[in-house]
Protein backbone atom coordinates (compact mmCIF):
# COMPACT_ATOMS: atom_id res chain seq x y z
CA UNK A 1 0.00 0.00 0.00
CA UNK A 2 2.70 2.42 1.00
CA UNK A 3 4.62 1.75 -2.16
CA UNK A 4 1.53 2.12 -4.33
CA UNK A 5 0.55 5.47 -2.88
CA UNK A 6 4.06 6.80 -3.02
CA UNK A 7 4.51 5.50 -6.53
CA UNK A 8 1.44 7.42 -7.62
CA UNK A 9 2.62 10.47 -5.70
CA UNK A 10 6.09 10.45 -7.22
CA UNK A 11 4.78 9.60 -10.68
CA UNK A 12 2.39 12.51 -10.64
CA UNK A 13 5.11 14.76 -9.30
CA UNK A 14 7.46 13.58 -12.04
CA UNK A 15 4.82 14.19 -14.68
CA UNK A 16 4.29 17.69 -13.34
CA UNK A 17 7.98 18.41 -13.28
CA UNK A 18 8.37 17.01 -16.80
CA UNK A 19 5.63 19.27 -18.04
CA UNK A 20 7.43 22.16 -16.47
CA UNK A 21 10.71 21.22 -18.06
CA UNK A 22 9.58 19.99 -21.43
CA UNK A 23 6.57 22.05 -22.44
CA UNK A 24 6.87 25.61 -23.68
CA UNK A 25 3.24 26.71 -23.28
CA UNK A 26 2.94 28.67 -20.08
CA UNK A 27 -0.55 27.36 -19.36
CA UNK A 28 0.60 23.78 -19.63
CA UNK A 29 3.51 24.59 -17.38
CA UNK A 30 1.12 26.06 -14.84
CA UNK A 31 -0.77 22.79 -15.06
CA UNK A 32 2.42 20.94 -14.33
CA UNK A 33 3.02 23.15 -11.35
CA UNK A 34 -0.41 22.39 -9.92
CA UNK A 35 0.19 18.72 -10.58
CA UNK A 36 3.38 18.84 -8.54
CA UNK A 37 1.71 20.54 -5.61
CA UNK A 38 -1.20 18.16 -5.61
CA UNK A 39 0.97 15.11 -6.03
CA UNK A 40 2.83 16.15 -2.91
CA UNK A 41 -0.46 16.77 -1.20
CA UNK A 42 -1.44 13.16 -1.81
CA UNK A 43 1.50 12.17 0.34
CA UNK A 44 0.40 14.52 3.09
CA UNK A 45 -3.15 13.27 3.04
CA UNK A 46 -2.03 9.65 3.01
CA UNK A 47 0.32 10.28 5.93
CA UNK A 48 -2.41 12.00 7.89
CA UNK A 49 -4.92 9.27 7.15
CA UNK A 50 -2.59 6.55 8.42
CA UNK A 51 -2.46 8.11 11.88
CA UNK A 52 -5.75 9.93 11.77
CA UNK A 53 -3.88 13.15 12.41
CA UNK A 54 -6.30 16.05 12.12
CA UNK A 55 -3.43 18.51 11.90
CA UNK A 56 -2.16 16.73 8.83
CA UNK A 57 -5.53 16.83 7.14
CA UNK A 58 -5.94 20.50 7.86
CA UNK A 59 -2.47 21.02 6.50
CA UNK A 60 -3.61 19.43 3.27
CA UNK A 61 -6.50 21.85 3.12
CA UNK A 62 -4.17 24.76 3.68
CA UNK A 63 -1.90 23.55 0.93
CA UNK A 64 -4.82 23.42 -1.46
CA UNK A 65 -5.62 27.02 -0.58
CA UNK A 66 -2.04 28.09 -1.14
CA UNK A 67 -1.99 26.25 -4.46
CA UNK A 68 -5.09 28.12 -5.49
CA UNK A 69 -3.51 31.44 -4.64
CA UNK A 70 -0.48 30.44 -6.61
CA UNK A 71 -2.59 29.54 -9.59
CA UNK A 72 -4.28 32.91 -9.48
CA UNK A 73 -1.02 34.74 -9.48
CA UNK A 74 0.31 32.51 -12.24
CA UNK A 75 -2.70 33.12 -14.39
CA UNK A 76 -2.53 36.84 -13.85
CA UNK A 77 1.10 36.85 -14.92
CA UNK A 78 0.27 34.83 -18.01
CA UNK A 79 -2.46 37.31 -18.76
CA UNK A 80 0.09 40.08 -18.55
CA UNK A 81 2.12 38.30 -21.19
CA UNK A 82 -0.95 38.11 -23.43
CA UNK A 83 -1.65 41.74 -22.89
CA UNK A 84 1.85 42.73 -23.90
CA UNK A 85 1.14 41.14 -27.27
CA UNK A 86 3.31 38.11 -26.93
CA UNK A 87 2.26 34.54 -27.20
CA UNK A 88 2.34 32.86 -23.80
CA UNK A 89 5.26 30.60 -24.46
CA UNK A 90 8.50 30.31 -22.59
CA UNK A 91 10.46 30.39 -25.86
CA UNK A 92 9.29 33.92 -26.43
CA UNK A 93 10.31 35.08 -22.99
CA UNK A 94 14.04 34.88 -23.47
CA UNK A 95 15.03 38.45 -23.60
CA UNK A 96 16.81 38.24 -20.28
CA UNK A 97 19.73 35.89 -20.36
CA UNK A 98 23.50 35.60 -20.13
Amino acid sequence: MNQAVWAVCFALFAVGLSLLILRRELLVMLLGLELMVNAANIGVVYGASLTGDAAGLSAALLIIAVAAAEAVIGLSLILRVYQSGRSPESDVLRELRG
Binding site: L17, M36, V37, A40, G56, A59, G74, E95, L96
Partner: peptide, 26 residues
Protein backbone atom coordinates in the same frame (compact mmCIF):
# COMPACT_ATOMS: atom_id res chain seq x y z
CA UNK B 1 6.89 40.48 -16.76
CA UNK B 2 9.20 37.99 -18.34
CA UNK B 3 11.32 37.95 -15.21
CA UNK B 4 8.24 37.55 -13.06
CA UNK B 5 7.09 34.60 -15.13
CA UNK B 6 10.44 32.92 -14.71
CA UNK B 7 10.50 33.74 -11.04
CA UNK B 8 7.03 32.35 -10.68
CA UNK B 9 7.57 29.06 -12.44
CA UNK B 10 10.93 28.39 -10.87
CA UNK B 11 9.59 29.43 -7.48
CA UNK B 12 6.53 27.30 -7.97
CA UNK B 13 8.67 24.32 -8.72
CA UNK B 14 10.66 25.05 -5.60
CA UNK B 15 7.44 25.22 -3.61
CA UNK B 16 6.40 21.88 -5.08
CA UNK B 17 9.71 20.38 -4.07
CA UNK B 18 9.27 21.75 -0.58
CA UNK B 19 5.84 20.18 -0.36
CA UNK B 20 7.10 16.83 -1.59
CA UNK B 21 9.81 16.97 1.05
CA UNK B 22 7.26 17.98 3.64
CA UNK B 23 5.06 15.02 2.70
CA UNK B 24 8.01 12.63 2.96
CA UNK B 25 9.05 14.09 6.26
CA UNK B 26 5.58 14.00 7.63
Amino acid sequence: VEAAIKYFFAGGAAGGLFLLGLALYY
